[in-house]
């Protein structure tokens, strides 16, 4: 069964190939960063390959922890778009890890920078109680805190629960490593039962679920 799914995956991927070298601007920049630091002699190429292959290796071929192997394989199975996106994530994770290990950056520096950028990005961007929002219909990797039944659904901000660390999708072992820089608002969002389950559901019933700011967009 699994094998059949994979065959479908590959033929679809061949169709998805548009010949573009980069998935997006972020992917392009992270590849260029790795190359530029290499050009300046901050690491040997095999050191980079070592770091990257830890992120990307599929299970069965190479020994490593089952959790990271599973995460990498799942990340690189699916449609072309999600593979490109996830490949960029794995590349970035390897890059961060190598630079941290080489002492070119420290985790607190990176977290502080991330927190600053996040604050700049989200200023005035927070939702108020009563705002109509739509949950992003995306396929996140790892432990996503984004159940299928709310993806793409409209709801209402009922209350702001506070700021919590967003579960990172970039931890090298596939775990959700909490980082201070990932802190962002979490809201209790209310959905009517009919919005979630269709018109057969009781019309006065509802469900509230806690959702991170990143997963919401204005209705």
């Amino acid at each position: 069964m699994r094998e059949e799914e994979r065959q479908v995956d590959l033929s679809q991927l061949i169709k998805d190939d548009d010949g573009a070298p980069y998935a997006d601007e972020a992917a392009a920049r992270s590849i260029a960063i790795v190359m530029s630091l290499f050009d300046q002699g901050h690491y040997a190429w095999p050191e980079w390959v070592d770091k990257f292959s830890v992120e990307i290796s599929p299970p069965g071929h190479y020994q490593q922890s089952a959790a990271s192997a599973k995460a990498a394989e799942d990340a690189l199975t699916g449609n072309g778009k999600s593979i490109n996106r996830n490949y960029a994530k794995l590349w970035l994770a390897a890059c961060e890890n190598l630079l941290l290990e080489k002492g070119l950056l420290t985790r607190p520096e990176l977290d502080a920078k991330l927190a600053t950028l996040r604050a700049e990005n989200s200023s005035g961007d927070e939702y108020a109680v009563g705002d109509q929002v739509v949950v992003c219909d995306i396929e996140p990797v790892g432990h996503a805190h984004l159940p299928l039944f709310v993806r793409g659904k409209s709801g209402v901000i009922e209350r702001r629960l506070g700021d919590f660390v967003f579960p990172s999708e970039l931890a090298p072992d596939g775990s959700t490593e909490a980082r201070e820089g990932d802190r962002q608002p979490v809201y209790s969002v209310r959905f009517t039962a009919q919005q979630l389950w269709g018109s057969d559901a009781p019309n006065a019933d509802s469900l509230n679920i806690s959702i991170w700011h990143n997963y919401l967009k204005p209705a």
Binding site: D24, E25, A26, R29, S30, I33, L37, R85, A88, K89, L92, C95, E96, L99, L104, L105, E109, L110, K113, L114, L117, R118, N121, C136, I138, P140, V141, F166, E169, L170, G181, H213, N214, Y215, L216, K217
Partner: peptide, 19 residues
């Protein structure tokens, strides 16, 4: 859309500006 896509973009931006 916001979410993990822009999450990666933000991380790349953080890395680049720090470097």
């Amino acid at each position: 859309i916001p979410g993990p896509d822009s999450e990666t973009a933000l991380r790349v931006k953080a890395l680049e500006s720090l470097l």
